[in-house]
């Protein structure tokens, strides 16, 4: 990936981050920290990797993305809105009655959302189903799933891990957002989830570890994953929760939280204010 592309993706991601902060500020509710953690992974996927057409959200040959850690949805909504799946005027209706940007992603309500999510742990199984369907239907699309490092404490995730290995789903590429935090504290305080990379390797997945805020590393890892034959891919993305905002980075109080007017003003300054 050349420097120009890196710069372009960085600028896009900064704008999306600001959308997220503004959306949560205006809604008075939401999960900004988890959203900012995966902003660069999402940006790389939607702006550099995925085969999509915002004019045809249900195009059957499109690549799919399931945001399994659905509470991070403001970053997905910002991305889909900026790509033109729906009007950015919808951003002011996050979590509101009758609006298309529901509290967690809903398939069928928000154009571009490939599957409902928000109840943790379920996205990988659904992604496996999409990948099995691709092979059965002889389609060449990829299915991407983004999981949280807290989320993978759910048992169904490991049912899906076994299933994807069994079906040799080399068209399934998953990410774990490894930021070390979950709602109740650090992942090590709350659970015994670590080591994570080794677990996926033991389950027969092709594993890579990347800096989750380095566009080139993310992109290269996706290329490596696509070059694999006969096994699913896990990209462990080392991320910083709340990445991009000085007051939010690594402060788990922002797992769920609402920026004040002053904090929104800081976000404008730190993120470039391009909204």
């Amino acid at each position: 990936m050349n420097e120009l592309k890196v710069k372009e993706l960085f600028q896009i991601a900064q704008g999306l981050r600001l959308d997220v902060v503004k959306m949560v500020h205006d809604a008075g509710d939401g999960h900004p920290g988890p959203a900012l953690s995966i902003a660069d992974v999402i940006t790389t996927l939607y702006y550099n990797e995925m085969r999509i057409d915002p004019a045809k959200p249900l195009w059957e040959d499109r690549d799919r993305l399931i945001l399994s850690k659905g509470h991070a949805c403001p970053i997905l909504y910002a991305t889909l809105g900026r790509l033109g799946y729906f009007s950015v005027d919808e951003f002011d209706g996050l979590r509101d009655l009758g609006r298309i940007l529901q509290g967690h992603p809903v398939f069928g309500k928000t154009p571009g959302v490939d599957m409902t999510s928000g109840s943790l742990g379920n996205g990988l199984s659904i992604g496996a189903g999409m990948a099995i369907a691709a092979k059965y239907n002889k389609k060449d699309y990829y299915t991407y799933v983004i999981l949280g490092d807290g989320e993978i404490q759910e048992g169904i995730v490991w049912e899906a891990a076994m299933c994807a290995k069994k079906f040799k789903l080399d068209n399934l590429i998953a990410f774990v957002d490894l930021n070390g935090w979950q709602s109740g504290g650090t992942t090590d305080e709350v659970s015994g989830v670590t080591p994570i990379y080794e677990k996926w390797e033991a389950f027969g997945w092709y594993c890579q570890s990347v800096d989750g805020h380095d566009y080139a590393q993310i992109s290269d890892a996706i290329a490596n994953a696509k070059a694999q034959s006969g096994r699913p891919s896990m990209i462990v993305a080392n991320c910083i929760k709340g990445k991009g905002l000085s007051y939010m980075e690594n402060d788990n109080a922002w797992h769920k939280g609402v920026p004040t007017d002053e904090q929104l003003a800081i976000a404008y300054r730190e993120l470039g204010g391009a909204v």
Binding site: E60, F107, D114, M115, N122, S125, I126, G127, A128, G129, M130, A131, I132, A133, A134, Y136, N137, K139, T143, G155, I156, E159, A160, M162, C163, K166, F167
Partner: peptide
Amino acid sequence: PERYIEVGIAEQNAMAVCTGLASCGL
């Protein structure tokens, strides 16, 4: 055989795999 999708003893996964399959037209 290509339409028999055996996921092992994992009902939650089985149900969610169905969602993925159905969302792709099956």
